[in-house]
């Protein structure tokens, strides 16, 4: 195992992180820290550089400049160890539709190196907790969207990662399911899992402990939702976002 970060209370730490593609600077010199157990909202307009930044944090893309650690591992030198220590879920990819519920859990548990006994035991626990016992043997594709979403999130934290990256996890789901989903996120943080989440729903930004807003590759604001609203003299996070994102110069919008 690699050398763990000295400060165990910091799960993500990046300094002057930059990613260039040719002469285009997708992520421009960003620095921030995320504390253990925190819900960190990562906001920005389309094309602001969120996906590129997130790929670097997940060990999928090597930065051009800067430095950083995720789960105590160096993002330049130890991307494989990072991948083992994190969970990931997006709206687009969640699970294998042609596998049964328990088969998905076994597959992902196995990939992350959990042993069969632990997988079995944790599967049992999860089915009870989610009230999913009747769905255990069903194919994922036969489940309603709300079920899938809950299950996908449970799969992403099944191996008890230090931090889970959620990329627009609630896109398109109905308003009640969306809120139930956030209640699951709170449960996960109670277990000590750190949550790094992107969303286009500004009411969800209010549920985060801290929020960063990217504009043209840079982090233009970073604070708790309450402080950001004060700072920008806004009544909600949508107004904060509108004020910042309208400054964008990149020709994306």
């Amino acid at each position: 195992m690699g050398v763990r970060g000295l400060n165990m209370d910091t799960v993500i730490k990046v300094e002057n992180l930059t990613k260039r593609f040719g002469n285009f600077t997708a992520v421009d010199n960003i620095s921030f820290e995320v504390k253990r157990g925190e819900i960190f909202g990562f906001l920005g307009a389309n094309g602001a550089g969120k996906t590129t930044a997130m790929r670097m944090l997940c060990g999928l893309s090597i930065p051009t400049e800067g430095k950083g650690t995720v789960a105590g591992y160096d993002i330049f030198k130890q991307p494989e160890l990072i991948k083992k220590s994190i969970g990931y879920m997006s709206q687009k990819f969640s699970m294998y539709e042609d596998l049964k519920v328990w088969e998905n859990l076994e597959l992902f548990g196995g990939i992350y190196g959990m042993n069969d006994k632990v997988i079995k035991q944790k599967t049992d626990e999860l089915m009870i907790k989610l009230n999913f016992e009747d769905e255990r043997d069903k194919l994922v594709k036969s489940l309603p969207l709300g079920f899938k979403q809950k299950l996908a999130f449970s799969v992403s934290i099944f191996h008890q990662p230090q931090v889970v990256f959620l990329d627009e996890p609630t896109g398109g789901v109905d308003p009640i399911t969306r809120r139930r989903f956030w209640e699951m996120i709170y449960d996960a943080t109670a277990q000590g899992i750190t949550v790094f989440v992107t969303t286009h729903y500004m009411d969800e930004a209010e549920y985060c402990d801290r929020v960063s807003i990217m504009v043209d590759g840079r982090i233009e604001a970073l604070d708790s939702p309450d402080n950001l609203k004060k700072q920008f003299n806004a009544k909600n996070m949508d107004e904060v976002f509108q004020q910042l994102a309208r400054k964008a110069k990149r020709v994306d919008n």
């Binding site: 920005g44 286009h200 949508d238 509108q242 964008a248 919008n253």
Partner: peptide, 8 residues
């Protein structure tokens, strides 16, 4: 507008 940021 699915997946489109609030400003756009």
């Amino acid at each position: 507008t699915t997946g489109v940021d609030p400003v756009s």
